[in-house]
Design a protein around this nucleic acid. Sequence first.
DNA 1: AGCACA
Length: 474
Amino acid sequence: MSTSGQPQFRYTQTPSKVLHLRNLPWECTEEELIDLCRPFGKIVNTKCNVGANRNQAFVEFADLNQAISMVSYFASSSEPAQVRGKTVYIQYSNRHEIVNNKSPGDVPGNVLLVTIEGVEAGDVSIDVIHLVFSAFGFVHKIATFEKAAGFQALIQFTDSETASSARNALDGRSIPRYLLPEHVGSCHLRISYSAHTDLNIKFQSHRSRDYTNPYLPVNPTAIEGIVQPALGPDGKKKEPESNVLLASIENMQYAVTVDVLHTVFSAFGTVQKIAIFEKNGGMQALVQYPDVTTAAVAKDALEGHCIYDGGYCKLHLSYSRHTDLNVKAHSDRSRDYTVPESGLLAVQQASGLAAAPTVWQNPQASPMFPGNEYAAAAAMQAQVSAGQVPSWDPTMQAGRQTFVSVPSTFPGQTFPGSSVPAYATAATPGASPHAQTSQMTPGVASMRMNQPALQSNVRPGGSSPGGQPPYYGQ
DNA sequence: AGCACA
């Protein structure tokens, strides 16, 4: 192996339509780069701020001859190539195309996604973050959260120019030591752009702030130092009740889709919204009912039971801190049943249930969250605990079905004497068998859906469900 | 002033 450590520079370089530019001024912008290169041809790609000093760049021309013309021009010119008065050295790159130029996080926006490496959430207060980023302009909102990647913050500026200046100045830098606790070692900021334009901050808390709205209520449970979970009679932590249940699914041998969950949870009342997300390699879901009472009944009835026989897809339920999920109306990871849908609408109206378009609070919730599930989730409800951050993956949209059938071929799925479809459809929110909930007690092997009601409804997808009712074994 | 990204 060559271990000299000295790069072997080639003095005769193979022409490439990609040019390597050095000695650029600090944080040279793409615009400055393009201004320099544009006279020689069509620029199809760039990569700026490359190298340890971020003073190198690559430019890719559409045509090799254009690159050659630029190199040739400056090779024979008495005036060197310059940016901001600095001489720029140009040579052919040793690669022939620029790859992976712009990840989603490189597309500028007014909201930054900041990962603070090497710290825990408690080490960097939101006030410190605010202080650091306010140097570049008015910070509108901040939402912080913890993810596998570390402690992260979404920081909303007025515009992408302000956000860019903050990013350019702070990316890769560290928060000044005097702002941090003693025990914190290095703490580098990794900054990219979020796809968000406006964060949805519900409370002022130690996790989230909205500096544009001083009257926003303070979330008492989210204030640092006041977090003291209520204790139940048995002395165990008692989580506050909620109309939204957090379901974690254990031993998930089979697919658990939004539709499966809707079927299961509709047995206890109208399911308004569902969001499925991954957590620590497992699967969790948030299920929203209209009221706490219904959620409580569902929680008690379903806790510890399995969706499928054989101990598969065992449910564990707790109350979420959410009260109103902000989810895509139709995706394979989430569903908002309060949003009228063609086909559904007719059924709902026919059954006397007003399809209330006013309930659709978040027409903006659908747009792209390119892979930034943490970001999307954070904005969903900024004060949410890290353990309950829903996410969804809009990239999965392409292959989604409107209604996915419950698989009908689960081994060991016993349901004696029943061939009744397991479907509670999105069209049957009113068909929920409250009257039956008393039967839905643990220990009962089969906890059936309201079968007549279910059968009376036609699924929008039109296909005949081949599945059997979910089985709630112990 | 000397080649990114995963």
